[in-house]
Write a protein that binds this DNA or RNA. Structure first.
Length: 485
RNA sequence: GGCGCUAUCGUCUAGGGGUUAGGACGUGAGAUUCUCAAUCUCAAAACCCGGGUUCGAUUCCCGGUAGCGCUACCA
């Protein structure tokens, strides 16, 4: 057990975003790799935008992904007193001062500066007020925010991913620590919490890179050592803009609903910005990397510094890879859940139904891209109530004579013994030969009849899986349909 | 605008002073076939630009350009 402590600190202003999920994953991997502690903290200091139900949703997504935390969840909203105490401490030490400027006044100044194309940062109006002036403003009923007094000089730090970063203080403004309503801002909250929670490594999105010097300044003002920092490149949409809702699904929950497996999403996300080292015997690093191997291989220093585009195609591929490797028990359970959600599951299923369910799931497994395929294109395996895909009908039911062929096939299949892979195929091929048509014609037409789809597993496996009775029924039904009855 | 960061196939990336610049997803072709997927084989596809350092830069340095981030009493 090392004394490494990291945290994931989402704010409940939205669902867990894939970018957030990756940040959580890297924190988690880092903690697990080093035998450290992974803390979960909810940054809900913005009362207007934070919603409690979103906290629940975020927790659920993390649990679904399997990113278990060791401590927390802590809520910043429950630690307000602590932040105020720290603010007071900073003020007492002369590192912070009350600012009586109104938000509207500042906004006006900023707008004006912008109109004149002048760079703007807080002008320090309240920076050097005398005690008497402060008393007077206070007496006049003005509320005050508390600002951090940024000293002269520069701050440098070594980011574990981005390397050496230097920022001159003149480019920083005296930022707000405590809002005029007494609520802490982000900067106060993170520093107080990271300090109190003993966080040793702050691993977060690169959007915080520019904030880091401010926070380091706070640690210094407090006389406390700063943790190590590691910033992660951002995840972009296909247009290279920061991934957002207009790019489609961005939340972990949305991918879950689309039938993506958590392990696939995790693997995909891990590779967005990080490549595992090549294994000793291998010439190339593997792409499919189970979680435990990721834990073993993970290093912050090998994380990329450039932003990455979220590639849905690759996620889909990865999902199919994981689907194919899924152990039977787990696959069956997931498929059952999927069927339940689609209203295709009957608790009254008997042993025979369950056996057919199992056989169907395994038959569908190798070609599934998503869990949705079981209730979607695979529907006919689990229900007699399915539609014929229009494209499939157009493609494979062109010949009117098919009505007779399928009818005849049904009658013959009703009698063959045993009803297995070999006999069903023999039966169909014999019929095709007698009618002087290619076996493929019957096979494709029959596939549509049995599954409603042009794309499905091998026909004879489908027949055997469905069972004689269903297969025969469906062929008859299709024959009627083709002949226009 | 200011400040910061980044820059290898369409995408994710490996690599690194001399390489046929490697892999994966996707794409195309072929094999197989019972549709599709899978599988196998093959193919097309990249070092942002300009200087410098060097015998030699895609690699190191500088500049430019572009992209992203920050520039809130959001986080």
């Amino acid at each position: 057990m090392s004394d490494i402590r990291v945290r994931f600190a989402p704010s409940p202003t939205g669902y867990l975003h894939v970018g957030g999920a990756r940040t959580a994953l890297y924190n988690w991997l880092f903690a697990r790799h080093h035998g450290g502690v992974f803390i979960l903290r909810i940054e809900d200091t913005d009362a207007d935008r934070s919603k409690p139900e979103l906290t629940t949703a975020i927790l659920e997504s993390l649990e679904w992904l399997g990113l278990n935390w060791d401590e927390g969840p802590f809520h910043q909203s429950e630690r307000l007193d602590r932040y105020r105490a720290m603010a007071a401490e900073l003020e007492r030490r002369g590192h912070a001062y009350p600012c009586f400027c109104l938000a509207e006044e500042l906004q006006a100044k900023r707008a004006q500066a912008e109109a004149q194309k002048r760079p703007w940062k807080y002008d320090g109006t309240c920076r050097d007020l005398t005690t008497a002036q402060r008393e007077q403003l206070r007496a006049s009923g003005r509320a005050s925010a508390l600002r951090f007094r940024v000293p002269d000089g520069e701050t440098a730090f070594d980011d574990q991913v981005f390397g050496h970063i230097t920022v001159e203080h003149r480019d920083l403004e005296d930022f707000v620590l405590l809002r005029s309503d007494g609520q802490p801002t982000y900067h106060l909250g993170v520093v107080a919490d990271d300090l109190d929670m003993g966080v040793t490594h702050v691993i977060r999105g690169a959007d915080h890179l520019s904030n880091t010097p401010k926070q380091i300044l706070m640690y210094q003002a407090l006389g406390a050592p700063a943790p190590a920092f590691a910033h992660l490149p951002l995840i972009l949409g296909p247009d290279r803009q920061r991934l957002s809702k207009r790019h489609g699904a961005t939340s972990v929950g949305a991918y879950r609903e689309q039938g993506v497996l958590p392990e696939a999403l995790l693997n995909f996300l891990a590779l967005l910005g990080w490549t595992p080292p090549k294994a000793p015997g291998e010439s190339e690093a593997r792409e499919i990397l189970p979680l435990d191997e990721m834990v073993r291989a993970f290093e912050l220093t090998t994380v990329s510094r450039s932003n990455a585009v979220f590639d849905l195609e690759k996620l889909a591929w990865m999902n199919s890879e994981y689907l194919r490797r899924l152990p039977p028990e787990r696959l069956l359970r997931l498929a059952e859940n999927e069927l339940r959600a689609a209203g295709l599951w009957r608790d009254s299923f008997g042993a025979e139904d369950l056996a057919r369910f199992e056989a169907s799931v395994r038959l569908l497994q190798t070609r599934a891209r998503s869990l949705k395929d079981f209730s979607g294109t695979g529907r006919a395996f689990f229900s007699d109530d399915f539609d014929y895909d229009l494209e499939a009908v157009k493609k494979f039911w062109k010949e009117p004579a098919l009505a007779e062929y399928l009818g005849a096939l049904a009658e013959r299949l009703a009698k063959i013994e045993p009803f297995d892979l070999v006999e069903t195929e023999k039966c169909l091929r014999a019929l095709a030969e007698e009618r002087g048509v290619k076996a493929g014609l019957l096979i494709n037409a029959a596939r549509v009849a049995l599954t409603g789809q042009a794309v499905a597993p091998g026909l004879f496996e489908v027949m055997v899986t469905l069972g004689r009775e269903r297969a025969v029924d469906r062929l008859r039904r299709a024959a009627d349909r083709i002949s226009g009855k």
